[in-house]
Design a protein around this nucleic acid. Structure first.
Lengths: 172, 172
DNA sequence: CTAGCTGATGTCACCTGGTGTCATGACCGT
DNA sequence: ACGGTCATGACACCAGGTGACATCAGCTAG
């Protein structure tokens, strides 16, 4: 991340990263499948925690209610890594390649949450819609959170965004 | 698309595509920035038409109402290319690289629709949420449409999906 | 203690996507 | 017939990524 920050993602070569870490290019590619992947370490963990939140949600909850629980779980994780979130986000935002990778991570997350929702007896279409809506809300909230000068809690921003979505969907 | 279909995307080399088309690798890259991009020709057109639908929607419409209009516009386009949609979709679904590209196209579409919604005086967050929700509905509907043995109209599937989303969001 | 196994790393050769640069040649208006 | 513009080809080059093999440390069995 230091190198990507200093010289930009495109201009940084894998050989350089490896050298700075005291390894070989070949070894780098044994740890990370990709030059991109190195920026997406924690993503499986986040996915697991959000899925777990859906699995643990009360049976009385609605689909979007369970998504709300998953977002609360994400909030915990995000606050833990707040200090790296900003720089990392700027690096990703500056590179189309990295944005692509971020989007497919989000899609994978959505698919996992959709599976979890189906397991909670929601219908197919409903589960997929709710899950994707959840990642959308997460990203919208993330963008507001990451550059917020007041350091408002992610949980609060996400809950507001989710409420706003409900409002949009019920109006008209 | 023929070559990608025959031998798979990864196994097809740009030199081969160029040869089959009677050109050079170099010339290929002057037309398409990417090996991937060749599968996403019509995407700007689709984007323009969906944005135009939002711009033309009656002022009384809600945000999701305008998204509905945009989906109707997409329906027209999709029906025009129905015969290629299936094979193309299968090729893309089989390759992570291509899925990434598809996702960023969807994100670009969502951003364009969000801009259009802001221009129609919707709030920032509302516009972004509605726009992303629209692309989500579009993809869900597309998956149902593309392999539907009854050849149900895209418009109908999309409208059903949108209605289902409204229901999810208002329940609980 | 040593022989042999295992797993992590380095070395090297190679392929392919992608780009910069220059040459070639077709077409076009004058 | 002339000069200019534009598309294409030819070629060299770089970086991401992979396969194959060598090396070496640590461990375990006898």
């Amino acid at each position: 991340m230091a190198l990507y920050g200093e010289r930009g993602y495109e201009e940084t070569t894998v050989a350089e990263i490896a050298e700075r870490a005291g390894l070989t290019k070949r070894t780098f590619f044994r740890y990370f499948t990709d030059k991109r992947e190195v920026l997406f370490w924690g993503s499986e963990l986040l996915e697991q925690q959000m899925v777990a939140a859906i699995e643990a949600a009360p049976a009385s909850a609605s689909a979007l209610g369970m998504i709300g629980a998953a977002l609360d779980a994400a909030a915990v994780r995000f606050e833990e890594v707040r200090e790296f979130a900003g720089p990392r986000h700027r690096i990703i935002a500056a590179s189309p390649e990295l944005r692509e990778r971020e989007l497919i991570k989000a899609a994978s997350l959505a698919a996992a949450m959709a599976r979890a929702l189906r397991a909670r007896r929601f219908g197919d279409t409903a589960a997929v819609l709710a899950a994707h809506t959840g990642t959308t809300v997460m990203h919208v909230a993330f963008e507001q959170w990451v550059d917020d000068p007041n350091q408002t809690a992610f949980q609060q921003i996400a809950r507001d965004a989710l409420a706003q979505l409900r409002e949009i969907a019920s109006t008209g």
